[in-house]
Amino acid sequence: MHTRALVLFSGGQDSTTCLAHALSRCEHVETLAFDYGQRHRIELDQRLAVLRALRARFPAWSARLGEDHLIDLAVLGQVSDSALTRDTAIEMARAGLPNTFVPGRNLIFLAFAGALAYRRGLDMIVTGVCETDFSGYPDCRDDTMKAMQLALSLGMDRRLLIDTPLMWIDKARTWQLAHDLGQQAGAAGGGDALVRLIVEHSHTCYLGERGTPHDWGHGCGACPACALRAAGWARWREAARPSA
């Protein structure tokens, strides 16, 4: 049984849903983010707003939510040539992947998360990687996660689980999962409580836009991250609409 979790928490829609997933199942949950020289710091600021809102709106979860950690990985930004670490237009690269791909990012994140989990006595790492609505990043694949789980468990000589609750669901089902988790938490506002929190406070936009919010939250509305989030919202709302 894995009851003590470390959530890779960027402050976006996916990682906020993963944090709620962990809080609904584990007795103790800590959060971890990385400053890797990303082109904007809005997500690092917004993740703190999400944590404050979770503590205030979900009392049952607040008691389980432990320490937050931020690790400086600026060296990753120095060695990567990506639209997430350079002020350049987002486009498809020659390798068939978008130039938002940061090679090795998730592998490095998980290695540091494993070391922190070992020190903190945590037995599960939760991450929002997904093979359904995603940009084709090879370090988000299920096979990659299984390989990293084995490597970390062997290297730490301790069974460490990598939990990927979003791996096989699309963005519409991610919105539904957030709704379900909010309802299960018994917070004021029922199932809509967590959805509203994600819309108001989370940040996923690659360009760091934080202006007038859309129905689905803040963002430029045009980058791949915003497009996925908006399309998922539209599909979810359409599915939730009562039939005539």
Score class of each variant (00 low, 15 high):
residue 188 A to K: 12
residue 110 L to C: 09
residue 19 L to P: 03
residue 214 H to D: 14
residue 27 E to N: 12
residue 64 R to G: 06
residue 128 G to M: 04
residue 69 H to Q: 05
residue 159 R to G: 00
residue 180 D to G: 01
residue 149 Q to E: 15
residue 37 G to N: 03
residue 35 D to C: 04
residue 159 R to K: 09
residue 87 D to H: 11
residue 3 T to A: 10
residue 26 C to L: 05
residue 100 T to Q: 07
residue 182 G to M: 07
residue 211 G to C: 11
residue 41 R to W: 00
residue 1 M to Y: 01
residue 51 L to I: 15
residue 114 G to P: 07
residue 89 A to Q: 07
residue 204 T to P: 03
residue 100 T to S: 14
residue 100 T to L: 06
residue 28 H to N: 05
residue 173 R to L: 06
residue 161 L to Y: 04
residue 38 Q to L: 05
residue 211 G to Q: 12
residue 37 G to K: 02
residue 62 S to I: 00
residue 116 L to I: 07
residue 222 A to T: 09
residue 132 T to V: 15
residue 185 A to W: 07
residue 192 D to F: 00
residue 126 V to P: 02
residue 154 L to N: 06
residue 123 D to P: 08
residue 188 A to N: 05
residue 139 D to H: 10
residue 75 V to H: 13
residue 143 D to R: 14
residue 148 M to Y: 04
residue 75 V to I: 13
residue 59 P to Y: 10
residue 76 L to T: 05
residue 190 G to F: 07
residue 145 M to D: 04
residue 237 R to Y: 03
residue 242 P to T: 13
residue 183 Q to E: 14
residue 32 L to R: 09
residue 101 F to R: 02
residue 199 V to H: 02
residue 142 D to G: 10
residue 16 T to E: 03
residue 104 G to A: 11
residue 84 L to D: 04
residue 30 E to D: 12
residue 216 W to P: 11
residue 90 I to H: 04
residue 180 D to E: 15
residue 104 G to E: 10
residue 215 D to P: 12
residue 192 D to G: 00
residue 73 L to E: 08
residue 41 R to N: 14
residue 81 D to K: 08
residue 25 R to F: 02
residue 26 C to W: 02
residue 36 Y to F: 12
residue 131 E to V: 12
residue 169 I to M: 14
residue 61 W to I: 07
residue 100 T to D: 09
residue 179 H to P: 00
residue 99 N to D: 09
residue 183 Q to V: 05
residue 35 D to Y: 03
residue 144 T to I: 13
residue 17 T to H: 07
residue 236 W to V: 00
residue 221 G to P: 00
residue 244 A to C: 12
residue 46 Q to V: 07
residue 124 M to K: 13
residue 172 A to D: 13
residue 69 H to N: 08
residue 229 R to D: 01
residue 223 C to F: 01
residue 202 S to K: 07
residue 164 T to N: 14
residue 34 F to S: 08
residue 239 A to K: 11
residue 21 H to Y: 15
residue 91 E to T: 14
residue 160 L to I: 08
residue 156 M to A: 14
residue 99 N to L: 11
residue 105 R to F: 02
residue 162 I to G: 03
residue 132 T to Y: 01
residue 158 R to V: 01
residue 134 F to P: 00
residue 138 P to N: 12
residue 142 D to C: 09
residue 86 R to N: 11
residue 44 L to F: 08
residue 73 L to G: 05
residue 94 R to N: 12
residue 98 P to V: 08
residue 113 A to H: 05
residue 81 D to W: 02
residue 120 R to S: 07
residue 74 A to S: 14
residue 106 N to A: 05
residue 175 W to L: 02
residue 156 M to N: 09
residue 33 A to K: 00
residue 57 R to I: 06
residue 84 L to C: 03
residue 54 L to C: 07
residue 26 C to P: 06
residue 11 G to L: 05
residue 243 S to P: 00
residue 142 D to H: 14
residue 115 A to W: 06
residue 182 G to E: 04
residue 195 V to Y: 03
residue 221 G to I: 04
residue 124 M to T: 14
residue 229 R to T: 02
residue 1 M to K: 03
residue 185 A to R: 11
residue 35 D to F: 02
residue 132 T to A: 15
residue 190 G to L: 10
residue 33 A to G: 08
residue 56 A to G: 03
residue 76 L to C: 09
residue 234 A to Y: 00
residue 234 A to H: 06
residue 95 A to F: 03
residue 14 D to M: 08
residue 134 F to N: 13
residue 114 G to S: 09
residue 153 S to K: 11
residue 120 R to D: 03
